[in-house]
């Protein structure tokens, strides 16, 4: 079997161009391995040859990932490799994004690709669905061991070998489900797991749930009688006709709409564009999702200080956690500048 052609992606630091001052280094291509590419070549052995190294400054890549991706794509078309290896990027945020983007572009061209990032790297959440990402240590101390795993994995995907489940193969789950017929029915397997759990033995779940955030409760609103409160909803209630084109699902945006002087949301003037629930009740009475009529009544009876004169909306359906987190941060920052003390969030 002839040696596989491997292309390697590195940032300016590992690509031996410079440190932070070279962060704006434009995209460039070098023949053969560079820096950790030598270690990658050693691990590949006769199975593969690092034919070229793509290098870009972290700032350059991360500030315009689309432009960076276009350059990666152009280089890959020219080189036509069997596989792309990016990084390892450890816990370097900008580098991790560039590694993820480079691999995603390769995968879109039909070129197998793999990178290695630490679980804390934002690149994992953003790109795990688009490419294989192997776990790594936090820092480059784990370089040699990671290069070995990257090389072995790269050879296998370049040869289009079947790749098993994330738990077995050791990559971050891509969220892809495969249908497989197993000899033992689900009930038997579930009982085995239950027995193992009861006896404290080790077992492997077949349904891995994503880790969730544990958020310490925020301090209560100090004086509710004086508090300025805002209504935020993920229920997709927008002015009739959806004038700003808010997406019906997989939302990446949020909008604010004035409720100044309104005693409630009138049917026919507002509608739900959320694609994840039957909107007929919400369309007949938008206050079911944005309870403005009730809150106005309580505002008038001084049960709290005042309502912020706008409500904020997005559609919470199929929304990536990473996007939801970003929107939450943006909304909180905006409301803070507006002197809002508390939020009533409604979710459908």
């Amino acid at each position: 079997m002839s040696a596989l052609h491997v292309v390697h992606y590195l940032n300016q630091f590992f690509g031996r161009i410079g440190a932070e001052e070279a962060g704006d280094q434009p995209f460039t291509m070098k023949e053969g391995p560079v820096g950790p590419g030598a270690g990658l070549q050693k691990e590949l052995g006769d199975a593969g040859t690092v034919v070229a190294t793509l290098i870009c400054g972290d700032n350059r890549a991360a500030t315009d990932l689309v432009a960076f991706g276009v350059e990666v794509e152009k280089a890959l078309r020219e080189l036509g490799p069997d596989v792309l290896v990016a990084g390892p990027g450890f816990n370097a945020g900008r580098y991790g994004l560039a590694c993820g983007e480079a691999c995603a572009r390769a995968a879109a061209l039909g070129i197998p690709a793999v990178t290695a990032l630490n679980i804390e790297n934002p690149g994992v959440e953003l790109y795990r669905k688009k490419t294989y990402i192997l776990p790594t240590t936090n820092t480059a101390l784990g370089m040699n061991e990671t290069l070995g795993r990257l090389a072995r994995f790269a050879i296998r995907i370049a040869r289009h070998e079947a790749i098993g489940s994330p738990a077995v193969e050791g990559f971050y789950g891509k969220g892809v489900h495969h249908t497989r017929i197993l000899e033992r029915p689900a009930a038997d397997r579930a009982l085995d797991m239950l027995l193992a759990r009861m006896t404290g033995a080790k077992f492997q779940t077949e349904l891995v749930l994503p880790p969730v955030d544990h958020v310490p409760p925020a301090a209560p609103v100090a004086d509710i009688a004086k508090a300025r409160l805002a209504i935020v909803t993920t229920g997709g209630i927008v002015p009739k006709g959806n004038p700003d084109g808010l997406k019906q699902s997989n939302s990446t945006e949020w909008r604010t709409y004035s409720i100044d002087g309104l005693d409630g949301l009138e049917a026919g003037k507002y509608e739900s564009i959320h694609s994840g629930y039957d909107a007929s009740a919400a369309n007949a009475n938008p206050n079911y999702v944005v309870p403005l009529d009730a809150l106005r009544e309580l505002e008038k009876s001084h049960a709290f200080g005042a309502l912020y004169p706008k409500y904020i909306v997005t559609t919470g359906v199929g929304t990536a956690v990473v996007e939801a987190r970003r929107m939450g941060r943006e909304i909180a920052a905006e409301l803070r500048t507006q002197g809002v003390d508390g939020v009533i969030l409604t979710a459908t």
Partner: peptide, 8 residues
């Protein structure tokens, strides 16, 4: 789910 703040 479709009407958290009321009952039609």
């Amino acid at each position: 789910i479709p009407h958290p703040c009321g009952d039609p």
